[in-house]
């Protein structure tokens, strides 16, 4: 462990906050929204890997790998959705798809 675990956690926290801000700010743009989710997942992975290094167990690394696999599934579906939506309305802005609004 090269640096205290707290420092790793702080870095993960900052990254998570940045991802959250990205999601909140770019609510309209589906692509940027997905990018924000990626940033948050990366922050989580950093926390897991830091934990694995802190306690010398492989479990945290396994979890980050599982997160990665999950992300790839999620991204492939989400981007297929983006392509589908773009085909319907020629835009990727989330507000355009509000037909079910009551």
């Amino acid at each position: 462990m090269i640096v205290p675990y707290e420092h790793v956690l702080v870095l993960a926290g900052i990254l998570f906050a940045l991802g959250l801000v990205c999601v909140m700010v770019w609510r309209l743009n589906l692509i940027m929204l997905l990018i924000g989710i990626e940033i948050m997942l990366n922050a989580t992975m950093l926390a897991f890997v830091g934990g694995a290094a802190r306690w010398g167990m492989a479990d945290g690394q396994v979890f980050s790998l599982v997160i990665m696999a999950m992300t790839s599934a999620e991204v492939s579906l989400a981007l297929a959705m983006v392509v589908y939506l773009h085909r319907r309305k020629k835009t990727v802005e989330a507000d355009e798809f509000s037909e079910l609004k009551g």
């Binding site: 205290p4 707290e6 420092h7 702080v10 926290g13 906050a17 694995a52 802190r54 306690w55 010398g56």
Partner: peptide, 20 residues
């Protein structure tokens, strides 16, 4: 929250985690 964590505990002595 992250900074509170940083300030409240302070840099604790890091356990010598071995590389996996």
């Amino acid at each position: 929250a992250a900074l509170t964590l940083f300030v409240s505990r302070g840099p604790a002595a890091s356990a010598a985690g071995k590389a996996i």
